[in-house]
């Protein structure tokens, strides 16, 4: 990865003209998106530069404590966002945090123990970013599905409760459906890897000068880790989350 390409600032500025195309379209077609596009672009540039400088600082520190702190920061933000989808759930943030953290740590541990990556900031942070982001999306889908199902399948749950079922046996179909919903996008993306698109990490490595075969090895690792992390996070979140829909008298709220 050392013979990678470097982009100079002038080239980057020139590429910003691409934003103009979007602005011109919006203006001529009266889409009224100029302001949004402009603010979005400025925000993206500022956010990315800040993140870039923070990452460079942490990479230089080479201190595992700072890497771990950043990792927790990422997990907390992801948990906060995922919990918004399950706004009816008690302790949504805690459930999301525990689920994402568990998925991330188990997956990272396997990758580190197997020697696929090292606990170095330049490896851990981007890899964790992918893991945490995927878990966040999976949990958002799980929570949305779970909230909808408890509303739409009220009769089924109450029928099972009335027959003497515990809250778990009365909700098991909803829990399974929700886990499935969280995992399906990752499984679908796995099926079409390399056929529909070259995934982000692989594209990045190839752009940076890595041989495609080596990039593929990394991508395969990423695919495995995303499958593992979405499974772990979705499983934990759904099994912790379904209880929020019942009160202490085992009644559907």
């Amino acid at each position: 990865m050392n013979n990678g390409v470097e982009m100079n600032t002038l080239s980057l500025l020139a590429s910003s003209s691409l934003v103009l195309i979007s602005l011109i379209f919006s203006y001529t077609q009266k889409l009224n998106l100029e302001k949004e596009t402009f603010i979005g672009t400025i925000r993206a540039v500022i956010q990315l530069f800040i993140v870039g400088y923070i990452l460079e600082y942490i990479f230089d520190l080479k201190n595992p404590i700072y890497t771990t702190l950043l990792l927790f920061f990422m997990i907390f933000n992801a948990a906060y966002n995922a919990a918004k989808r399950g706004n009816k759930m008690k302790n949504g943030i805690i459930i999301s945090f525990v689920s994402i953290a568990s998925g991330t740590f188990v997956t990272l541990m396997i990758l580190i123990v197997s020697g696929a990556i090292k606990y170095e900031p330049y490896q851990i942070i981007p890899v964790s970013g992918m893991i945490v982001n995927n878990s966040m999306i999976a949990l958002g889908l799980c929570f949305k599905q779970m909230t909808g199902s408890f509303k739409n399948k009220r009769e089924e749950v109450e029928t099972k409760l009335s027959l003497g079922g515990d809250i778990l046996s009365s909700s098991i179909e909803i829990i399974r459906d929700s886990i499935r919903t969280g995992m399906l996008p990752t499984i679908d993306a796995t099926k079409t890897l390399g056929i529909v698109s070259l995934p982000g990490m692989m594209t990045g490595l190839i752009l940076a000068g890595t041989s495609p075969v080596n990039a593929i090895k990394y991508q395969i690792m990423v695919t495995f880790m995303l499958l593992s992390t979405t499974a772990i996070a979705s499983f934990i979140a759904c099994y912790l989350g379904y209880r929020s829909f019942f009160n202490e008298r085992k009644q559907l709220i």
């Binding site: 009769e155 029928t159 009335s162």
Partner: peptide, 23 residues
């Protein structure tokens, strides 16, 4: 009733719904 386990109560007191739901 609040002193019973809710599941024990429902095993004793069986409710058949107006709209039958078969799962």
């Amino acid at each position: 009733m609040n002193q019973y386990d809710p599941i024990d109560l429902r095993l004793d007191i069986s409710y058949c719904f107006q709209t039958p739901y078969l799962f």
